[in-house]
Each structure stands twice: as structure tokens, then as C-alpha cells.
Design a protein around this nucleic acid. Structure first.
Lengths: 179, 179
DNA sequence: CCTCAAAATCTCAATGTTGAACTTTTCAAC
DNA sequence: GTTGAAAAGTTCAACATTGAGATTTTGAGG
């Protein structure tokens, strides 16, 4: 019994038939990354809903939570961490403030900046949601052995690093502060 | 010199410090899949723009193109292939019709259905765009060796299949037409 | 023929994002 | 002190998606 064909396999087969002049194999990798992202995100949404959170609400709260005490970041910091534009962050924060999960205050030391802080209620919500979240994600990956999961993560890390995906302030060989 | 840390590595480090009671490693896999999907999609957008196409326009045209002559599918078929709802398909088709890249006609054999067909102009556009697209994607993956790319694709296929990602009409052991 | 449920699409309001323009604040140079 | 550019957010219009409800068509029974 051979391995079943997935959706992308069929797409590649179609391209090879219709456009024999091009090699579609890159689509086999990137197409599956996109498709997996969409599928997994749909699954996560179910877990978030159990905690009455939208995916984007979870994102913000989780980012604040994992930053550690005092669970506080600037709007710009959140924007960078979330891969969304500043306009979207303003919007998200408005909602979370009205739900009482975060507070918004001008930074006394730099009044251009806005400091977003997790409230106690926000911390309770995110702590419960994260616990569920990771166990849900573990289930989503159950078809892969721990070794395969590590392999997958390593390959993706290599790919991401080649696209400049490094945490702020840790740029490859580029300008680092202080010579 | 050890491997540089990527964005997700930092996130995992933060979680381990803040929530030592949970194992965040599933996020190391799924977080990177999402992040890679977003990064790669941003890169693709640049290529599409050279052909005056939105990502979603490319999707529809490419789906029709690879289906082979007569480059024709129902709205429902396009919806399933694109992972978007039927409402979105209606919208997309409206735009493509107004650009003269596809035509929309009621299926004579089943007047509930709508047949979308690629025009000659549409075919020219997508043929040029696809050529550019695959070479762009090949570049996006250049950091991985061909062997690593295959490995990555295989791991993702396994993951996708475990979530039921199979081409329509080829369900695992399920009802297949004609005994 | 008539009825009714399922199928296929369209309509539409609610929602969230992007990107650009705009405002306020900061800081360095004069 | 002024001036001017850069930084940080907010505002806002354009746009695309989702999800539910409405519409039309089909086909099986009766």
C-alpha cells in the first residue's frame, strides 16, 4: 500500500500535465506550508472559542503574557511581534480595552508611545487559554513522531532564517548596538 | 558558531520561562508553519504584482488553468479548490469577469451551476504569471537543498493527510465511485 | 403534476486588515 | 529657543472574507 495522495500532490500532477515546461516542485513545498497553516489555524480557532477569544485577541494577550512581568509592551512592540500593521494594532487594543483584558496608557517617559498592560482578568484568561492551546496543538501534530516534529521545526527554522526572520535586536551579522 | 535563533525560538524561550508547567514545543512547529506561510505569501505578492494580479486572482486563474482544457469549472469546484467560501468566490469571479479574464455562464445541463471559463486573455496572463511564480518560489526555497525540500514536503504531506487533506473524490478508504 | 428536501449560488451585513495621510512628540543642530 | 526630520499612534477609506439567509433548480416520491 503506497502513501495516499494529498491535495497538493494532485495539483502538482495537474501542472506537470498542463505545463511540462516548468518544474512545479517548489509549489509542493510552499503550497503545503500555506495549506497546513490554514488548516491548523482553523483548528486553533475552535480552542480559542472555548475561551471566548478571537485568534487575534489570543495573539495580543499571549504576546503580553510571555513577555513576563509587568506584562507590558508598547503598541509598536506588539505590532512587530504580530506581523500586522499599526492600524490593526490600534483596532485590536480598542477591543481588548473595552473587554477589560488590557489597559492603555501613555508612556510617561516617551509620550509618543502607548503602553499596553495585561489586567489581572486578562492574565487569567490567557493563562487558561494557553494551557488548552498547547495541548490542542500537540494533538494537531500527533501524526508526526517527536523526532519528525523536531525535523520539521528545524527545516522551517532554516527556511525562516534565510528570509531574515530573527528576533528584533539579534540581526545576523548586521549592525548591532555598541561596537 | 551555533545556529542563530529565529523569532519562534525566542517565543519558546519566553514561554519556558513564564510557564514552566507547559511544554511549548508544539508551538515551535505550528508557529513556524504560520510564520513561514505569511512570509512566503508576502514574497509571492511581489511576483503577482508584476503581472497585475492580486493573490486571489492568481489563485482562481491558476486553478482553472491547471484543470486543463476547456479551462472550465463550476463556482463550487473553485470554492473547494481554494479553501474559501462560496460568497468569496462570487466576489472574485465578478472581478475577473469585469477584467475579461474569465467568463461566467449557467450550466445548460444543471442550471443551478455556474460554469467559469478562462478566456484567451486570461490564459495568456496566467501562463506568464505561473512561469514567474515558480521561479520566484524556487528562489524562496534556495536556502534548502533539494533533499531538504523533499523532506519538508514529505513531513507536511504526512501532517496534512492526518487532517483529512485529500483531493476530492479520493477519500482515504471511503466511498469511491463504482465498486 | 405536486411537494419537499437537497444542491448551488447569490446577497448582504458585520468584521478585520492594509496603507496612506495626519497629529503629536522627541531630539539634534543651529 | 527655533527649526526640521524622524518616531509612534490614530484615523479613515477601500477592500476582501465569513456566515447566514434568500433564491432558484433539481429530483425523488406520491
Amino acid at each position: 500500500m503506497e502513501q495516499t495522495e494529498d491535495h497538493v500532490d494532485r495539483v502538482l500532477r495537474q501542472w506537470r500535465a498542463e505545463r511540462p515546461d516548468i518544474d512545479p516542485s517548489p509549489m509542493g513545498v510552499i503550497g503545503r506550508i500555506s495549506r497546513a497553516a490554514q488548516t491548523l489555524s482553523k483548528r486553533n480557532r475552535v480552542v480559542f472559542a472555548r475561551h471566548e477569544l478571537q485568534p487575534w485577541e489570543f495573539d495580543i494577550l499571549a504576546t503580553l503574557r510571555r513577555s513576563g512581568p509587568p506584562y507590558q509592551m508598547t503598541a509598536g512592540g506588539l505590532s512587530g511581534a504580530s506581523m500586522v500593521t499599526s492600524g490593526a494594532i490600534t483596532n485590536r487594543i480598542d477591543h481588548l480595552v473595552s473587554r477589560g483584558l488590557v489597559t492603555r496608557a501613555t508612556d510617561p517617559g516617551n509620550r509618543r508611545s502607548v503602553l499596553i498592560t495585561l489586567t489581572d482578568a486578562g492574565r487569567d484568561v490567557i493563562d487558561g487559554a494557553v494551557t488548552d492551546h498547547v495541548s490542542g496543538e500537540a494533538q494537531s501534530l500527533a501524526a508526526l513522531s517527536p523526532g519528525e516534529q523536531d525535523q520539521l521545526a528545524a527545516l522551517l527554522r532554516k527556511l525562516l532564517l534565510s528570509h531574515g526572520d530573527a528576533p528584533a535586536g539579534a540581526q545576523a551579522g548586521a549592525a548591532s548596538s555598541r561596537a
